[in-house]
Amino acid sequence: MTRRKRPVYPAGQRSALCLTFDLDAHTMWTSKDPGNAARPAVLSSGDYDLGQGLDLVLGLLAGHGVRTTFFVPSDVAVAFPSAIGEIVAEGHEIAMHGTDHNPLPDRSRPAEAALLRSVKDTLEQVSGTPVRGYRAPLYDVTENTRDILAEIGCTFSSNFMDSLHPYVVHGDHGAIVEVPTHWALDDGPHLLFANSPPNHRQFLGNDQIARIWLDELRAIHALGGVTTMVLHPQLVGRPSRVELPARLLDAAEELGEVWLPTMGELAAHVLDAADVLDRGKA
């Protein structure tokens, strides 16, 4: 595969902010330790994800008039279709996040292709909407992933950390837009704490996390890039923590010229811009 950087944003927009959410629910915990399936207190964080955490996040987005992308494991969608319906009813996009938040059990191309087709079909059946993108659990992709996504009719991937700009990847089965991110923009490293298995860290104050995220947003904006936030309602959806994405939205408004698309909208614009440029060179 090859990649080519393109001018990608609508007129009057200098950068993009994709405030995306992973709705992992209980799979965040069962994927780390299967024994957590028998630990109700551990799983209660997944209940919060689907309940008050999601409510606070959806309220924040509605209050700012923002539509975004939710990445959902297919097992979560099947088990909790009402949550998916609520997200879709608010105008948000559903995208793939594996089956059960575990890495690929079989990394061969045929097995990965079959799994991604199955996940896409399941999410489309539950959500009643087209599914166009993929974020792998723990960003664990293979050299075949993006070409498989193109083969099954997707338009975007959000797994790599190799650029500040969205870019087009051309493969045997078509083009995919990669919307890059970075661990610093994922709330997990800042907020995830667990006993099973041990994942002990000191919780940071909002001002410390906000400084990291706001500094990144402003620096990426100056370079005309995309700030791809990877957030989880059971983490950033705590009552005090939901202030963090609110600060990002306020900062984006203050900066001006920050586009707030869904990932599907961003990918469509990037691909259209690439087509226009290609026709101009013909």
Rank of each mutant, 00 (worst) to 15 (best):
R3T: 14
R4C: 14
G12F: 00
G12D: 03
Q13C: 03
Q13T: 11
R14S: 13
A16E: 09
T20D: 12
F21C: 04
L23S: 04
A25G: 09
A38Q: 05
L43A: 01
D47Y: 04
D47P: 02
D49K: 00
L50S: 05
L50Y: 03
Q52F: 07
Q52H: 10
L56D: 13
V57F: 03
L58H: 10
G59N: 15
L61G: 15
G63V: 13
G63C: 04
H64K: 12
P73Q: 03
D75E: 11
V78Q: 15
P81E: 04
I84Q: 01
G85W: 03
G85F: 00
G85R: 07
E86W: 05
V88A: 12
V88E: 08
G91E: 11
H97N: 08
H97S: 08
G98M: 01
G98S: 03
D100S: 01
D100R: 00
D106Y: 12
S108P: 14
S108H: 07
P110T: 12
A111C: 06
A111W: 06
A114Y: 07
L116R: 09
L116W: 12
R117Q: 15
R117L: 10
K120Y: 02
Q125C: 00
T129C: 04
T129E: 08
P130L: 05
V131Y: 00
V131Q: 10
R132H: 06
G133S: 03
A136H: 00
A136N: 06
V141W: 01
I148E: 09
C154E: 07
S158M: 10
F160D: 13
L164W: 00
P166W: 00
H173K: 11
A175I: 05
I176N: 04
V177F: 00
V177E: 02
T181N: 12
L185P: 14
P189V: 13
L191I: 06
L192F: 06
F193P: 05
P197Q: 10
P197H: 08
P198S: 03
H200P: 06
F203M: 10
F203N: 11
L204N: 11
N206E: 13
D207T: 15
I209L: 12
A210L: 04
R211L: 06
I212T: 15
W213V: 15
L217R: 02
R218L: 09
I220N: 02
I220A: 05
G225K: 11
G225T: 15
G225D: 13
T228P: 13
M229W: 05
M229E: 09
V230L: 15
L231G: 09
R238A: 14
P239G: 09
S240V: 15
S240M: 12
V242Q: 09
P245F: 01
A246L: 07
L249Y: 12
A251Y: 01
L255D: 10
W259D: 05
P261T: 14
E265M: 04
E265K: 03
L266I: 15
A267G: 09
V270G: 07
L271C: 04
D272P: 13
A273T: 15
A273R: 11
D275Q: 13
L277W: 01
R279A: 13
A282D: 13
A282T: 15
